[in-house]
Design a protein around this nucleic acid. Structure first.
Lengths: 203, 203
DNA sequence: TGCGGATTAGCACGACCGTTCGTATCATCC
DNA sequence: GGATGATACGAACGGTCGTGCTAATCCGCA
């Protein structure tokens, strides 16, 4: 690995941390350079614009998310156990990835929703992918009979996403000590509501 | 009403709109003055600092939210109908209040969660109030027998908040045409799961 | 009609923003 | 060991930020 790529990785790691607290707009080249103890221009040379830096931060975060959350969850047995593993890793991934401001996608998602341009497009793309993954996880539980066949995987993904967003808010903004317990309770309620009700009358 | 208070109202109205798209940090005194076709210093004189402007924007938004969502919902009959009215008004309030960037509290909630200071404190205060209101609405449905007695009002509020946040994201970021339908479906599922299951075995 | 306080404008400031340019240092291969 | 490209630095640009002054203008009341 060349020296250039090495520092580039170092820059992106720190940039992700800053973006998680201050957002992709709050992320500043001068501030980033200060923390990394290098010159503004030296850092700038690695990306030829701030927009390119933002794009690479999003890509790096998506990579890390896949490696920390999605791929390990795929190792769990399919259906509900896999979904459960996904949820657990999802809840802790920001901390595990050393992001002091919580999930960078939550931050960026709100920040960029009214800001047209390539950065927004890139984020939307990755988040659509993520929603598709959620859907597939839920569909897997349906196919294996863990969930009823009338469970809508897309709706399930929507509801799961809601739990995570409400948790993020209760935890990080309101600093509610019950946030995590409530998120888990909501998850259990959602899963329970999707399971076959009784020993299944028709089968 | 003095002329000063009148322009102050005008300023705050526009400031709320800008804050809904660009956030309270993206809100800029110069930009605000341009849109309102007045001088930066003339506008600045109404608030003696940007922080004061941000605080007043939050207060103005909270007032408008109460008037548009909470108080009209209180006119509906208590219990589930009132909760339903609240949900409907909540879903449409940003549009009804003419906020082009969606709910300003969603924006501010993510923006300020890592930014200590009086602005954050003010937002947290208003959002805690709001969560308490949600809890009371749910508790009302329990007391009237519309919901089971083992329904936790705080958890119900958490779940409801999650639906709104997921809707905001699907609607504004992903621009998913099914967002509203899914939010309504999630609401119905949540309410159904809280209702007494069958003609009530124990009573 | 004119006075006085309330309201707005004009202008300047220091700080920071993203970006550019010329230059210096470093690693690498002949 | 000396040339060459990659990497980093320092200084500077035009622009925008929040904020502080002072002067002009407006409006309600005597």
């Amino acid at each position: 690995m060349s020296k250039g790529t090495l520092t580039r990785e170092r820059i992106l790691g720190q940039a992700m941390r800053i973006a998680s607290t201050d957002g992709l707009n709050g992320l500043t080249i001068g501030g980033l350079a200060d923390v990394l103890e290098m010159s503004k221009s030296g850092l700038f040379a690695h990306f030829r614009s701030k927009e390119e830096l933002q794009l690479q931060v999003l890509d790096a975060a998506a990579d890390r998310f896949r490696a920390t959350v999605v791929e390990p969850a795929l190792a769990a047995p399919g259906g509900e156990p896999r979904l459960r593993e996904l949820f657990n890793r999802w809840m802790t991934w920001a901390e595990a990835a050393g992001m002091p401001g919580g999930c960078v996608f939550v931050q960026a998602g709100v920040e960029l929703d009214d800001q047209e341009g390539p950065v927004r497009d890139r984020l939307v793309e990755s988040q659509r992918d993520w929603m598709e993954s959620l859907e597939l996880f839920a569909a897997g539980a349906v196919k294996r009979g863990h969930f009823r066949t009338d469970v809508d995987p897309a709706l399930f993904g929507f509801q799961l996403q809601g739990i995570m967003l409400a948790w993020h808010r209760a935890h990080r903004l309101l600093r509610d000590p019950d946030a995590t317990a409530r998120a888990r309770a909501a998850f259990e309620a959602l899963v329970a509501s999707a399971r076959p009700s009784i020993p299944q009358p028709g089968a």
